[in-house]
Every structure is written in C-alpha cells, then in structure tokens.
C-alpha cells in the first residue's frame, strides 16, 4: 500500500516535470534549442586550429624539427587559412548585427591589410589575451586570433 502511494506520487511529480515544457509557453528568446550556429562554430574552430598550428610550427622550427623553407611555406599556407576564416566570421557576424555596407568595406580593407602584413605601421593596441601588438582598428589579434575590444 505504502509503496503504491509513494510510486504514484513519484510518477505524478516526474510527469509534471516532463509535461511542463509542453504546456507552459517558453519565452521567445529562450528558444535556444533550435539555433543552428554550426557554421560560425566551425569557422571559429578552423581559425583557432590555424593559429594553434602556426604557433606549433614556430616552436617546432625553433626546436629544429622542420627546416626554414618548410616552415615558411607551411606558415603562409596556414596564415591564408586563418585570414579566410576570419573574413568569413566577420561577414557572418556583420549579417547578424545588420551593419551597413560601409563597415563591410572596412573589413575588406582590413583583411587585405592583414594579408599584406602592413598593419604594423599603423597606430597600435595590445591584445589582452597574448600581449601581441595589433593595428588600432583590427578586430582580431594577428597573433592569437582573439577578438579585440573596440577602442
């Protein structure tokens, strides 16, 4: 008898817990369960991976595991990969925040500057994550890929 009462109570409690999300309307902003931010995540991972690889290559080159030529070739290859990812991340985020076309041009200019490595000559800030220098208007740290705060 006691066991049946206990079991029925437990079932009722659990049943309420399971049914509640179905009957109580969720706040629209709470509906995170279906958000597909997969592309952005993939790109961020790709960017992080490229940066980590470059760091590792630098260290391997310093330790004398790979030759100077191999290092330069591989580094360039991963730099391009990182820059491409950064560009796409920025595009995705720009779409998200619905910014104007002017800003997109800005990104274009900055990424090409990054590509040609000219940013060093402009006014600089420091990355809070790794301490490297970055161009004042850069959005990402060129050394570790961390996001930079807007001045």
């Amino acid at each position: 008898m006691v066991e049946h009462v206990v079991v029925i109570f437990l079932i009722l409690g659990a049943g309420y817990f399971v049914v509640r999300p179905l009957v109580i309307p969720r706040r629209p902003d709470d509906d995170s369960s279906l958000k597909g931010d997969d592309r952005l995540k993939q790109l961020t991972l790709k960017k992080d991976r490229a940066y980590a690889t470059i760091k590792e290559l630098e260290f391997d080159a310093n330790m004398g595991k790979i030759s100077k030529e191999d290092f330069e070739t591989l580094k360039r290859q991963y730099m391009f990969e990182a820059v491409d990812s950064l560009k796409e991340i920025d595009e995705l985020e720009t779409v998200k925040t619905k910014t104007t076309g002017l800003e997109e041009k800005n990104i274009e200019r900055k990424t090409s500057a990054l590509r040609q490595n000219k940013s060093a000559k402009k006014p600089q800030v420091f990355c809070v994550e790794c301490g490297s220098r970055a161009a004042l208007r850069a959005r990402f740290c060129p050394s570790c890929g961390a996001k930079l705060a807007k001045p």
């Binding site: 817990f17 399971v18 049914v19 509640r20 999300p21 179905l22 969720r26 509906d31 995170s32 369960s33 279906l34």
Partner: peptide, 10 residues
Amino acid sequence: GEVIASAENA
C-alpha cells in the same frame, strides 16, 4: 523546442 525540452526532462 518545447518537445525537446520535455524529452530532456524525461
């Protein structure tokens, strides 16, 4: 989303 939430509670 609400069905998934219910499944997770289950």
